[in-house]
């Protein structure tokens, strides 16, 4: 895989919006920051568990959810920095092996929220290869917008657990800030899942 720094082509907002339109009944656990803004920008939904904190916990949260709701498809949708902080959780995912869990890493090789500092996936770290090394058999790296149908099939249809990386461009996007009251987000999410009363 070519690793030319910051030459990624995929535009994140359009890509995420078009991907989420194909998700069916899949519930989404976005990581903190840009991944959460991307989901909200694509159109608010009660089954998005927006996050403003807990860096490294998107995959563990999605794993717990997938185990508790084996009949629902769950997607952890996060950034490269957030994934790297919780990278060990991929070993736990492989070990528990829920077939209803998929992970998508939006990889702009940078800490976009904090000033675009270069991240560890820019040159050496290959997140999909790490996932395979931990025992996640199904991986995919999207480098073009045209990879979207293949990606959607992997994330929303094929048995998991699976992990995909989308090499997204480093971009400046309009702020799209959802609800930030965690209890309100969690409550709305549980009602949407049918595990809490409205």
């Amino acid at each position: 895989m070519s690793k030319s720094l910051k030459s990624n082509k995929i535009g994140r907002r359009k890509f995420v919006a078009e991907l989420l339109a194909l998700r069916g009944s899949t519930v989404i656990v976005p990581g903190l920051g840009s991944a959460t803004w991307d989901c909200f920008a694509a159109g608010d939904s009660a089954d998005y568990l927006y996050s403003w904190g807990g860096m490294g916990l998107a995959v563990p949260t999605a794993l717990g959810l997938a185990l508790a709701q084996p009949s629902r498809r769950v997607l952890a949708l996060t950034g490269d920095g957030e994934m790297m902080m919780g990278i060990g959780s991929l070993a736990v995912v492989a070990d528990q092996a829920p077939s209803n869990l998929a992970i998508l890493v939006l990889d702009n090789e940078s800490f976009g929220e904090t000033g675009r500092q270069t991240g560890l996936s820019a040159q050496k770290a290959d997140i999909a290869a790490v996932a395979r090394g931990f025992g996640i058999a199904h991986t995919f790296v999207a480098t073009s917008h045209d990879d979207l149908p293949t990606l959607a099939k992997l994330l929303f249809e094929q048995p998991g657990p699976s992990l995909a990386v989308a090499k997204i461009a480093l971009s400046e996007d309009p702020w799209a800030l959802p609800e930030k009251d965690g209890a309100a987000i969690a409550r709305r999410f549980q009602v949407a899942l049918g595990v809490a009363k409205p």
Binding site: L57, A58, P60, G64, A66, L67, A68, R72, L193, V195
Partner: peptide
Amino acid sequence: MRLITLTTEEEGIGIAAGVWLGGGRA
């Protein structure tokens, strides 16, 4: 019951929250 072996304890905090969001207890 399900035993989940972690790589670091903080993962368990996220997993427990996810289980609860899905209607279970950890």
